[in-house]
Design a protein around this nucleic acid. Structure first.
Lengths: 361, 361
DNA sequence: CTGAAAGCGCTTACAG
DNA sequence: CTGAAAGCGCTTACAG
């Protein structure tokens, strides 16, 4: 369109009859400029609608931007590997800006493990410029946050939010809403009224995530709102203890033959799904969470009706970008960023491959 | 991590005992370098895993990157304004790279209008570097594509794909799958079996989009697969002709009292929804397409059960990014990029605000 | 075929 | 408080 080249810092220096150094000082409020000049430079910048060239700036600055991501261990295909994918993708994009991300992992079922990794983080030489935190253990995360606050290090939360903390931003879902949606999908897919099996699937060490609790409450709330009178039957399953699970499930289905629906509030719902598959119980409708391989397989086989999904890759991706943008360009993102809660069915899950949702530059 | 600074082009020049000019020629295959030097430089680049600094490159190149987006007129809140949003967002991000996007609009119901705008585009001085095309009118788009091929101008398709064309990339959904998902959601929300009203909503000028046709076929396919025996009752509604619509709807509901479900294959399903609302027909379940304001309101009021949504903002955003990346850095994206087909219910639509799905840099 | 030099638009010491 | 100069890592004429 307009043939006039973009206005450069040099141009406004010329227009204001000062040196580029002075303009730079005005732009960044570095002080040491006469009021007169500040006024004039600002005036001109506004008039010509000056926009700094971020490319040039970042090339000149070359300040290192070393981020640490504190997230659970990721094995291929598990929930957290998607977040790692997003983090690495953002890192790639920002490589030329000098952004590097070190991922520190912990055992997602162990608070001790989290705390060890956190203190390891704090012991690192002062080469850290920002942190991304998977907020699994609320109290521990709050402690870490205080330590980061003291060092004036910016940090971003992912997975679930903890309010009133000094986080630069949060990227994740509204977990209660996630529970409500689960309830609605379950009701919609139950052919007949019946009781509902609610499975709390957890590690032997027993550590319920706040995310899971919130979903549970959302689930109940929805049923109450709909005046549903079906009975909720609660059980506890243990990751990695098949014998225990088999026994509990055999028993509950024997005692409650009226069960027609089932739900599990985390990504391990496949444990329940695989039981249903083994016993050919297609009469029981199951709804679970997260787009991970075993869940997807069961969705496809018809043993899971719907998966409620987050966007872990976008959480990681946005976390890195927000932190970098803040460090490099002093730009502050909105604090609470609620990402979509996706509903995945057999018919649409295949379009949720992470690759198509992010694009480089 | 590693304290060694990134390897620069200068470094590899030094290592290879040549000038930076020579290295540059090798990197970009500009020729005019002795075989011996080509070999040596390549060897070294591989050894040290050289990655060019794109920031520096783009600052040095400063080649203009003027894109044209050929899409339907967008009024606030309509489907196409979301695409405009994504386009503008990408433009902002890439501003420092010299990317500018000019949007040329046409009447989405008029092929003539499309062709006029297209020929206008081709008449523009050679300041165009790439084009984004909303592929509403297949034959016309193919003609435009040929003209662009001749001029060696890269172009990206959005909305729906046309195969075997020389597009750099396509960003959009699988429309047939979109129809299947609509069918599944409708069946799931129909409390009782009944007939299904299929509304073709179009402009008076009568111009069915390929997108709509594909969804229709997907819808039928799903019902057949499920061995559903309900009758499909087809009607035609006209955008902007309330009298006609009212009459047609009155009539069809009188003649087919067994209708319990309804569907419309484009974003104008609110026309049908508003009729249901006016007549308090909550017994009829309606499924439609696209996250636009009137549809969302009806979803919230319970007159629309589900909206099947695309991500127009991501289509525009990715289109601009892909084209820029190709022009600036010679990077080729995958050709066919199928974006997610989202299922929106009353409980989750509010998290699909476009802002949270994109982030600057 | 090759290299030395200038330049992209900004920031950063440094000298005054 | 202010300005001149060098530099970020690359590309682009230009001269040889």
């Amino acid at each position: 369109m307009q043939k006039n080249k973009n206005i450069r810092l040099t141009d406004i220096a010329r227009l204001a009859n000062v040196s580029v150094g002075t303009v730079d000082r005005v732009i960044h409020n570095r002080g040491r400029v006469s009021e007169e000049n500040v006024r004039r430079v600002k005036e001109i910048m506004k008039q010509v609608n000056y926009k700094p060239n971020l490319i040039a700036r970042s090339l000149a600055v070359k300040k290192p931007c070393h981020l640490i991501a504190l997230i659970p261990e990721f094995c291929t295909g598990n929930y957290w590997s998607a977040m790692e994918y997003g983090i690495r993708r953002a890192e790639e994009e920002l490589e030329s800006f000098g952004v590097k991300v070190t991922i520190l992992t912990f055992d997602q079922y162990s608070r001790t493990s989290f705390e060890q990794t956190a203190s390891h983080l704090l012991d690192m030489p002062d080469t850290i410029d920002g942190v991304i935190v998977g907020t699994l253990f609320k109290e521990s995360v709050i402690r870490l946050s205080s330590a980061l606050d003291e060092r004036a290090l910016p940090y971003v939360y992912v997975d679930s939010d903890i309010e009133e903390q000094g986080r630069l931003a949060y990227y994740g879902t509204d977990s209660v809403a996630g529970g409500e949606i689960g309830a609605r999908m379950l009701l919609a897919s139950m052919a007949f009224k019946g009781d509902i099996l609610v499975a709390r699937i957890q590690h032997e060490k027993g550590c319920l995530s706040t995310q899971g609790e919130k979903r549970h409450s959302g689930f109940r709330r929805y049923l109450e709102q709909q005046n549903c009178d079906m009975q909720l039957v609660e059980i506890e399953l243990w990751i990695g203890d098949e014998a225990h699970n088999e026994q509990v499930l055999d028993e509950v289905f024997r005692n409650y033959p009226g069960i027609r629906g089932a739900v599990a509030f985390n990504s391990s719902c496949y444990i329940l799904g695989e039981y249903l598959e083994k016993h050919h119980r297609k009469d029981i409708r199951l709804v679970g969470y997260d787009l991970i391989e075993p869940n997807v397989r069961l969705l496809n086989e018809g043993y899971v009706q719907a998966l409620i999904a987050q966007r872990p890759e976008l959480q990681g991706y946005n976390g890195v970008k927000a932190l970098s943008r803040f460090l490099l360009f002093d730009e502050r993102p909105p604090v609470v960023n609620l990402l979509p809660i996706d509903i995945l069915l057999k018919e649409n899950y295949q379009f949720y491959n992470k690759v198509s949702n992010l694009l480089l530059i």
